[in-house]
């Protein structure tokens, strides 16, 4: 879902974060190439604002302690745990969520397609974080080997199954 799909949020009004936010300051976030004005509380994590204010619910808030990686997004192209960074810490930075990988018409990115083709999904909870951690790796290193891929996934947990399908999907996107 994208912000324009949220009927209760007219584009001219800042999105509302939480219920303590009436006197909270407004800030501008750049997410998936678009600027958004949001009202946020000082303790609001980036993950909360992305999900609850901007409707970008691809990322998951699993542990909220930086253990599971399900909330991974890119900040200036590098993977971070969006639950372990306050929204005020990323003003002026460029944020990419899993929704930002697909084309405007909804076509999945080659990496997303590879996850589908390799069956790199079971319950799907960890998948957005896995995809973003992989995208962060590929941004820096277009041709990683299996060891580098496993190192890059060190902060992302899948509790359904093995990591092999995920590693295979990413490996298939490594430049030859």
């Amino acid at each position: 879902m994208t912000p324009k799909d949220l009927p209760h949020l007219p584009p001219s009004e800042p999105a509302f974060a939480g219920f303590r936010g009436t006197a909270a300051p407004c800030l501008t976030l750049t997410v998936n190439g678009r600027e958004h004005s949001v009202v946020a509380d000082p303790t609001d994590r980036l993950s909360l604002v992305l999900r609850d204010c901007l409707g970008l619910a691809g990322l998951k808030q699993g542990c909220l302690e930086g253990e599971c990686g399900a909330c991974t997004v890119l900040v200036d192209g590098e993977p971070v745990n969006s639950c372990l960074i306050l929204v005020f810490q990323v003003q002026g930075r460029s944020i990419t969520t899993v929704e930002g990988l697909e084309a405007p018409d909804g076509t999945l990115s080659p990496l997303q397609k590879a996850f589908v083709e390799h069956g790199a999904v079971q319950c799907g909870y960890c998948t957005p974080g896995m995809v973003m951690a992989a995208q962060g790796l590929l941004n820096r290193n277009p041709s990683p080997d299996e060891r580098e891929i496993r190192h890059a996934l060190g902060g992302n947990l899948c509790r359904c199954t093995g990591f092999q399908g995920i590693v295979d999907a990413i490996l298939s996107q490594a430049a030859q």
Binding site: P79, A133, H151, G154
Partner: peptide, 9 residues
């Protein structure tokens, strides 16, 4: 140190 997400922040 830690994992990539920790190292970038």
């Amino acid at each position: 140190i830690g994992d990539p997400a920790v190292r970038h922040v």
